[in-house]
Computed example of a mutant assay.
Amino acid sequence: MFRDLSRPIETGMPTYPGDPDVTLSPDATHGEDGYATSELRAGTHAGTHVDAPRHALPDGEPIDGADVGRFAFDARLVDCRPLEPREPIAAEALPEPDALDPAVDLLVLRTGWASHWGADRYRDHPYLTAAAARRCRALGVGVGLDAFGPDPTPPGSAEDTGPPRGGEPGGTPAHDALLRDSLPIVENLCGLDGLPERFRLYAFPLRLRDGDGSPVRAVAEWEE
């Protein structure tokens, strides 16, 4: 079985606060030119995408520096629901080291926030605590999420972020912890309901020279 877990790339789609807007518009048309091409303008972290270490670390590995096989994951689904807006996900919500199959290299965290895509509330997704990020490092696994990312997202525009909300970490500590060990982060997944606990996840990035991340076509595969 295969299932697409990625968001369509389209004009006006939600983007992380401060990131470039996405536009997809005709460039040539069958009527006028006899063929069709389109112009796509988007940031490297638009829609469903994978982060490269270069995203958080100035000297981190770029997206085109990783072997392509590193983007074919043995994934385990972790249902973290129910969660409140901006609720921290504790280490205890993740598998214990002795309860995780050593073949697993990606934990896909189902927060339930995929249902808020396109609404302001999507910014108020849950996030990983420092302890949860440390557990991922100890397990040697990356994370996939149905949200903007593993750190809190500013509630408004980049110009109106303000200080961290009470108890929330500033900056991108979960990104830093994971990407420092070249552990993958796959963001803005969808379609997680009904997936089995174990599956393969393919999230191949574009080969962007020295890129800090890339949109992906995220696809789950499993046996019935």
Rank of each mutant, 00 (worst) to 15 (best):
M1H: 01
M1L: 10
M1F: 00
F2T: 02
R3T: 00
R3D: 00
L5D: 00
L5P: 00
R7Q: 12
R7Y: 09
P8T: 03
T11P: 03
T11K: 03
G12L: 09
P14G: 06
Y16A: 07
G18E: 04
G18I: 02
D19K: 08
D21H: 12
V22I: 11
T23W: 09
L24A: 12
L24R: 14
S25P: 03
T29K: 07
H30V: 06
G31M: 10
G31A: 15
A36P: 06
A36Q: 11
T44A: 14
T44D: 12
T44I: 14
H45R: 12
H45L: 11
H45W: 14
A46Y: 06
G47M: 05
T48I: 01
D51H: 13
A52H: 13
R54S: 08
L57K: 09
I63H: 10
I63Q: 13
D64L: 04
D64W: 09
A66T: 11
A66K: 13
G69Y: 03
F71E: 04
F71W: 12
F73R: 00
D74H: 15
R76M: 10
L77D: 01
P82L: 01
E84C: 10
E84Q: 13
P85R: 10
I89M: 12
A90H: 14
E92H: 10
E92W: 06
E96I: 02
A99V: 09
D101S: 05
P102L: 08
A103P: 03
D105T: 02
L107W: 07
A114H: 08
S115F: 08
A119V: 04
A119I: 02
R121I: 12
T129M: 05
A130L: 14
A131M: 02
A132E: 01
A133C: 04
A133W: 01
R134S: 13
R134L: 12
R135M: 11
A138K: 13
G140Q: 06
G144E: 05
L145D: 06
F148Y: 15
F148M: 11
D151S: 09
D151T: 03
T153L: 02
P154T: 05
G156K: 11
S157F: 12
E159N: 14
D160K: 13
P164H: 05
P164F: 02
R165G: 12
G167H: 06
G170M: 09
G170C: 03
G170N: 05
T172N: 11
T172I: 12
P173F: 06
H175G: 04
H175L: 08
H175Y: 15
D176V: 08
A177H: 04
D181Q: 14
S182Y: 11
L183W: 07
I185T: 01
V186S: 06
G191D: 00
L192C: 04
L192S: 03
G194K: 00
R198K: 04
A203Y: 08
P205E: 01
L206Y: 10
L206S: 14
R207N: 11
R207T: 09
D210G: 14
S214L: 08
V216Q: 11
R217V: 07
V219Y: 03
A220W: 00
